[in-house]
Design a protein around this nucleic acid. Structure first.
Length: 644
RNA sequence: GCCUGCAUAGCUCAGUAGGUAGAGCAACUGACUUGUAAUCAGUAGGUCGUUGGUUCGAUUCCGACUGCAGGCUCCA
């Protein structure tokens, strides 16, 4: 029997009888065989050692490709599980997938793993790699598999098998004495994993991600095609840590957090300057896009939250206070208050869409474990707005919102945005036809903007579908910033209505939307994105005037005054220090422009300009500098060179 | 909230195998009048997160609490 193998480039080759990926790779080149980790057979990932016994289109997966790395990482997880079982036989294994940059495995064990254990496990992993154990795929009978794992005391594994769809083939991979349920594919042997892996951290994780279940111990690791790639990754992480907003926030004296106010930010003068710059920018942008800014109360009677449904839904997450036998809540969100503003006076269809915006200060009693710097806090300000409109207006409103959002993100220097569309959950309000229309409107708006987006079926809110807009931080964590949610429920609950063309009263649709999300979080991301070196229009201090000799003090003060009159955030440094010292300090503070003032400048009415990220100095008349720098600020220019 | 770890001077960190602690930078004082990433000398600065316990004695060992870090869960 002859087998016909088709390659990605269309080439075809005949083999006599069944053939394995290993043979095919070897047949092409020994280099390919060395780097092969799996084979794609008719679009399915297969082990290299599995016989291909029908004609097939194949593609060899190499260790440095995205798919190849996934195989390596998955194998690393298995090798780790084997190492753990050898060292701590009483441990139960559960699941261990490959993830971005690495892998993890969840273990059930009475005793907690220690950081020392991690080292021991890693050492044992290297041994297993050295042993180069053959990895074999076996197809098992379901009941037999369940019985086998139960016998071993691996109740979690047995549970997983029992829950697999009935038509799924149960495959088990064997390496040495270790057996694990797995769909595969895997490497032909453990030696192929080589040494590009490292265990990184220990964490708790709930069985099946549900906090009602038992808590397991998760060990995270990272794995790469070789040691060099691993080192490069570790170095990247180190670099990323340097731009952590918490570190930079302290080093640049932007803000602080302290025990007495967990999850609430103390903004320092410089941090507040950036905060203000961002907020004022947004205010102007919103006005330009047809929004009207409002301000609503911080403390509102609990009855409104009961009516809106937040009291039951948010519950413990709300801060409440009681005064004169009356119970209030500090607002966790702004929407019900915005409806109150809408409800004042009679609204006509002619008033729609009505866009109400607020820099709403919200408080949520988040679980202590979820707080993170200024990115995840208990007290934050949303660039919140609610658009009251008709169903027909949803699509155009969403489309123009996306355009608005892109303008804003681009001004801040973000070009990579992650889009997710969340559709109807099982529990919901509103008819299917209304959901159909709303989901289509969102989808259409995304497509109209030529956006690649991800669908999250069933992830929508009970009151309507939504789009989430996320940005990545410096170590690749994704933070949701923007949001666009359709709401069919709240306007009705809170009795919002307008008079339609035919004189009847109708309930408007409400769109909840934010671009920055929370100003606190956005600033955190912004600081990391720019490694603290904020572009001129956002920098807390835009210009520093530094004197070289005390004789230049009067002129320096004059220069600073002129800069401030031009609307710039300028400070003057008259300290009795050498200019080298001043330049160093202000460069570390990442101030966009340092103006050095000596005797010459004072006499000539010039300034010696030193821009951040450059060692060059340019002497120019003060007026020229002001004009040039103001243009840069007005145009919101971003730095060309990304400074470290 | 749960799991693991951490908490020492304003900052970054060292240290004490249980006998109340040290460096660099910053601060303060003085000298120096300086030309583009650290001028020199001196001074001062700490209930070693809070709180119980063990001990003759705890910053160090054990427990609780608070906060922080990384995860889980949740989410702007």
């Amino acid at each position: 029997m002859s087998i016909q193998i088709t390659f990605p480039d269309g080439a075809v080759k005949q083999f006599d009888g069944p053939v394995t990926g290993l043979t095919i790779a070897d047949d092409i080149s020994s280099g390919l065989r060395r780097n092969a980790v799996a084979i794609e057979v008719n679009g399915e990932m297969w082990d290299l050692t599995r016989d291909i016994d029908t004609d097939a289109t194949v593609s060899i997966i190499t260790r440095d490709s995205e798919e190849g790395l996934e195989v390596l990482r998955h194998d690393a997880a298995h090798v780790m599980a084997e190492a753990v079982k050898e060292l701590y036989p009483e441990t139960q294994v559960t699941i261990g997938p490959s993830i971005e940059n690495g892998f993890y495995y969840d273990f059930a064990r009475e005793e907690a793993f220690t950081p020392d254990d991690l080292e021991a496990i890693e050492a044992r992993m290297r041994e297993i790699v050295k042993r180069n154990e053959t990895i074999e795929r076996e197809v098992w009978d379901r009941d037999e598999a369940i019985a086998y794992f139960k016998r071993l005391g691996e109740i979690y594994k047995a549970e997983i098998i029992a829950d697999l769809p009935a038509d799924e083939t149960i495959t088990v991979y064997r390496q040495g004495d270790f057996l694990d349920l797995c769909r595969g594919p895997h490497l032909p042997s453990t030696g192929i994993l080589r040494d590009g892996f490292k265990l990184t951290k220990l964490a708790g994780a709930y069985w099946r991600g549900d906090s009602n279940n038992a808590q397991l111990q998760r060990i995270y690791g990272t794995a790469w095609s070789d040691k060099k790639a691993l080192k490069a990754y570790l170095r990247r992480m180190e670099e990323a840590e340097k731009r952590d907003h918490r570190k930079l926030g302290k080093a640049m004296d932007l803000f602080h957090l302290q025990d007495e106010a967990p999850g609430s930010v103390f903004w320092h003068p410089k941090g507040w300057a950036v905060y203000q710059a961002v907020q004022q920018y947004m205010a102007a942008k919103q006005y330009e896009h047809g929004y009207q800014e409002i301000k609503t109360p911080q403390v509102v009677d609990i009855s409104l939250w009961e009516k809106s449904g937040h009291a039951s839904k948010f519950g413990d997450d709300m801060f409440t206070l009681t005064n004169d036998d009356r119970m209030y809540a500090i607002k966790p969100m702004n929407c019900p208050c915005h409806v109150q503003v809408f409800n004042q006076g009679l609204k006509s269809y002619r008033d729609l869409p009505l866009r109400l915006a607020e820099f709403g200060s919200c408080h949520r009693n988040e679980m202590s474990g979820s707080l993170h710097g200024i990115m995840r806090v208990r007290s934050f300000v949303q660039d919140d707005a609610h658009i009251f409109c008709t169903e027909e207006q949803i699509q155009s409103e969403v489309k123009s919102f996306i355009d608005f959002l892109h303008e804003v993100y681009a001004d801040f220097g973000f070009d990579e945005v992650i889009y997710k569309l969340s559709t109807r959950p099982e529990q919901r309000v509103g008819s299917d036809e209304v959901w159909d229309r709303a989901e289509q409107a969102l989808e259409q708006a995304l497509n109209d903007n030529g956006i690649e987006w991800e669908l999250q079926p069933g992830e929508g809110a009970f009151y309507g579908p939504k789009i989430e807009f996320s940005l990545k931080d410096c170590i690749g964590r994704v933070w949701q910033c923007g949001t666009m949610q359709v709401d069919f429920s709240m306007p009705e609950r809170l009795e919002a209505e307008y008079v339609a063309e035919d004189g009847s009263k109708r309930v408007p649709v409400m769109l909840h939307r934010a671009i920055l999300g929370s100003i606190e979080r956005f600033l955190g991301i912004l600081i990391e994105q720019h490694a603290g070196a904020l572009p001129a229009w956002l920098a807390p201090q835009q210009v520093m005037v530094a004197t070289i000799v005390t004789d230049a003090n009067d002129y320096a003060v004059e220069v600073a005054k002129a800069l401030r009159s031009a609307g710039l955030r300028a400070e003057v440094d008259l300290r009795n220090e050498k200019i080298g010292y001043k330049v160093r300090e202000h460069s570390l503070q990442k101030i966009p422009a340092i103006l050095c003032i000596g005797k010459r400048e004072a006499e000539e009415g010039t300034v010696a300009v030193r821009r951040f990220g450059s060692k060059a100095q340019t002497v120019m008349p003060l007026e020229d500098f002001i004009e040039q720098f103001c243009t840069e600020v007005d145009e919101k220019q971003l730095f060309d060179a990304q400074a470290d």
